[in-house]
Nucleic acid binder design. Structure first.
Lengths: 172, 172
DNA sequence: CTAACATATGTTAGTCACTAACATTTAGGA
DNA sequence: TCCTAAATGTTAGTGACTAACATATGTTAG
């Protein structure tokens, strides 16, 4: 992270990272499958799943997933937010990272869909879940990007909250 | 496309593509910035923009963008759908392609946001536009993926239509 | 018809992410 | 202390992509 922030993601080679960590390049690849994973690996998934499960099953899906994501962000501590902010800024700076970010999102989303599938296994319900999870996750991403781009004192959780509201307002 | 479909995307080298096209590898790179662009470049953007602009300005944003996308798909001819289907199947087969697909989407989305910005330039309106465009585009992608995965006789336009409906139903 | 110029293409050599195969070290238990 | 398994290192390679320079090809002016 230090090297990437100092000299940029693309201009930093894996060898440099390896040297800085005092290991060989090969060792880096054994711990992180790609260079992008050095930035992107996190472990928010379990918390997100718990928050989604904890909400009322009767709620509309978008509300349920969206509010869970917003609450999860609101619960992060100041240093956690700092790290998140730096990671997001980095992601925005490199196309390769932006691309992988969305792949990551997809994995978390799959877990959420899995958690909400319940007994219903028909493809139509699966489809509906995917649509709603997609909308919530992209709304969250958009909110985080706005948070990272502006120097406002916005709290990310509140931005996500608002994003979900907009979705409700702009739906016929 | 032929080579990629025959032997897979990752196992086909750019050199092979160049040979098949009877040019040098360098020439390939001058026409397509990356290997992924060989599959991903399309020119649907102008049509999408026109369809979005053509709809009632009074409509909720999700309806407006979502229906425009659904209509655009409904309007494609049989051979165009065939090509689209093959491209989507290919994208689903290679992680690198999946990632870039989302980058592509982002570009089209930016154009839609641009088109709908109008006179309002405040960041809050921009934010709202992004949220809605995101939701519609990911819903479309989910619909296309479902279309490509199942061998049902579903029409993609109709699937997108239904996806947008789900979004409306699951919103509080 | 040709000279001049721009544009498209080819060639070569290089960087860097990533992989495979094998060698070496390190750590922990019998 | 020996043995085994896991972690790390080394080397050599592949393949996407870039930079620099050379060549061809087409286009317009004289």
């Amino acid at each position: 992270m230090r090297l990437f922030l100092e000299q940029g993601f693309e201009t930093t080679t894996v060898n440099q990272v390896a040297e800085a960590a005092e290991v060989s390049a090969m060792t880096v690849y054994r711990h992180f499958p790609t260079k992008e994973h050095l930035v992107l690996s996190d472990d928010y998934d379990p918390d997100i799943l718990e928050l989604v499960r904890a909400r009322e099953p009767g709620e509309p899906l978008v509300t349920r997933i969206g509010r869970a994501l917003a609450d999860g962000l609101s619960r992060l501590s100041e240093p956690e937010l700092d790290l998140l902010l730096r990671r997001i800024r980095l992601m925005l700076s490199a196309p390769a990272l932006r691309a992988r970010l969305l792949e990551n999102q997809h994995a978390t989303q799959a877990a959420v869909v899995e958690a909400l599938r319940g007994e219903r296994t028909d493809p139509e319900w699966e489809f509906r879940l995917r649509i709603c999870a997609d909308a919530c996750f992209t709304a969250t991403t958009a909110a985080l990007i706005r948070w990272a781009e502006t120097d406002d004192a916005h709290r990310p959780g509140e931005l996500v909250h608002r994003a979900i509201d907009y979705l409700a307002e702009e739906t016929g």
